[in-house]
Amino acid sequence: MAQARASDPDSGPIKVGRAEAARWSGALDLLRLVRARPGVTRAEAARVLGVGSGTATEICSRLRALDLIAEHPAPPTGRGRPTTTLHAHPDGPLVAVVDIRQAEWRVAVADLEGTLSEPATGRHGSKRPEPVFAAVREAVEALSARHGSRIRAVSVSAAATVRRGRIGQSSVLGWRDVEVEPLLPGVPQVIGNDATLAGLAEARLAHPGKSVLYLTIEVGIGGVFVDHAFAVTGASGAGGEFGHAPFGDPAVPCPCGATGCWDVAVDGRAVARLLGRPEPDDPRAYLIDALVDPGSRAAVEQCSASLGRGAAGLANILDPEVVSFGGLAPELRRAAPDAFAAAFEAGLMGFRRDDPPAVIASALGPDAFLLGAAEAAFDVVLTEQSIGEWTAARFG
């Protein structure tokens, strides 16, 4: 996933001295805190940032004047001075977020607090990249027409391996080596694997400060290891392709080109294969139906055991504090809990069984991919250069 880097304080669209750079640093720290903890009080923000109340008041005043935050009176506590709660400004920066799935796409806008709004959806009339991105571009342009320069970045979550900003491969869409042209020219754009971005959001929003192994089942299984808010994605950004670890049947080919992938051992394709049926057109819907079908119970148990065994293997390798399941993974575990538990425990190294990582369902639900895209987008927006450009564009 792309990493943003702050510009040199004496370069870029607004030249600032060291004292001014320090003030911007405090302002960015506050904006990042409001993003992580919407509604934080100004008094608590001062404590977290290690600044005096006067400094916090001055920074908040500056950011309010720049349409970056809004302040509301905090509920009275009966002691101490009145304070305020800090929120996204109603005219503040926005990001456009995109989620491209096997059969459909979604687009929305997100504000500093991570609130998603103005959703648009569509189904792929064709799975060729050109018509898919043409439809998405039209939806993003419609958002831009409504919000103008408030849209500061575009972020794309794709059910695909993403490498150096390009789609290297998507088994579910049949894509290979696809460049994603700017959806909104002149606006920074980032792109990431859907499971990577969902896991980034899960770790930052639900388990801040912890090391989190995130696994999600949609069509196949994907995930990411997030270590203290940073997604571990390797040298080119293509790391975390856990679905293509050889945790499955070595005799079963995967659309990625490998054999024995975990990806085809835990979803609707696996259930159909174990039942001796043809591969379903919609593996996700097929798995949903199979989870409540008594005739599919034995196949579901095998898939749940595969989920448990693979999760244990990754826990041994990565040493997470939390294993979080998204998508259909919690439902698969719930449908065959004994099979999962037995495989997970058997797969753990002996010393881990006394203190295994917590295995829980994701807190984010179906919006996890869009929320993750928003996280990646605001990593680009909340930089000294980007905020300087916002100031120059809006206030000259």
Rank of each mutant, 00 (worst) to 15 (best):
L215P: 02
P90R: 03
Q3L: 12
S324D: 04
P208G: 04
R164G: 07
F133N: 06
D367C: 03
C60E: 12
A315G: 09
S171P: 10
F247C: 12
A160K: 10
D8A: 12
G276V: 00
A195H: 08
R101F: 03
R269A: 01
W390A: 06
D379Y: 01
L200A: 08
M1F: 10
L116G: 05
V380D: 08
L143D: 11
R152M: 12
A229R: 08
D194S: 08
S170W: 01
D10V: 13
C261L: 02
G78D: 13
A335Q: 04
P13T: 11
A315D: 06
G80L: 07
T259P: 07
L348N: 06
D354K: 13
R297S: 14
A110V: 07
E181C: 04
V226M: 05
P337V: 06
V97C: 07
A198E: 08
P278V: 05
D355L: 11
P255K: 04
A56P: 05
V252L: 12
P337Y: 07
T83G: 09
L328T: 00
G372S: 11
R47H: 15
V97L: 03
T161I: 13
A346V: 05
G326A: 02
A4I: 00
V266S: 10
A305W: 00
P38Y: 02
P76L: 06
L49I: 06
A22K: 13
S386L: 00
V132E: 10
D379P: 03
E218N: 11
R79D: 14
Q189V: 01
A195I: 04
D194A: 09
R128N: 15
R334Q: 10
A206T: 06
T85N: 01
E58T: 15
A88E: 01
G174Q: 08
L205A: 14
A160D: 10
L33H: 12
S170R: 01
S304C: 02
V109R: 07
T233W: 04
E375D: 11
E130Q: 14
E20I: 08
A198F: 07
V40M: 05
G165D: 01
E138M: 06
L49Q: 11
L332T: 00
V252P: 10
A134R: 15
R152P: 05
A206I: 00
V381M: 05
V48T: 14
E130C: 09
Q189Y: 02
V322M: 14
D267R: 00
L332H: 01
T84E: 12
H244Q: 13
R42C: 04
P357T: 02
A305D: 01
A56G: 11
A373C: 10
D10P: 01
P250D: 03
G234M: 09
H72K: 15
A159N: 13
R309H: 14
A4F: 00
E279A: 14
E44P: 03
T77F: 01
V109C: 07
V162F: 04
S126D: 15
G350T: 15
H87R: 05
S53V: 11
A392K: 10
A36G: 15
D67F: 09
A270V: 01
P90H: 02
P320S: 11
E58I: 04
L332M: 04
H207V: 06
G192V: 00
V132P: 13
V180P: 11
S324V: 12
G388S: 11
E130K: 07
S126H: 13
E138A: 15
T233P: 09
F395M: 06
A361E: 10
V300E: 00
E118V: 07
G39S: 07
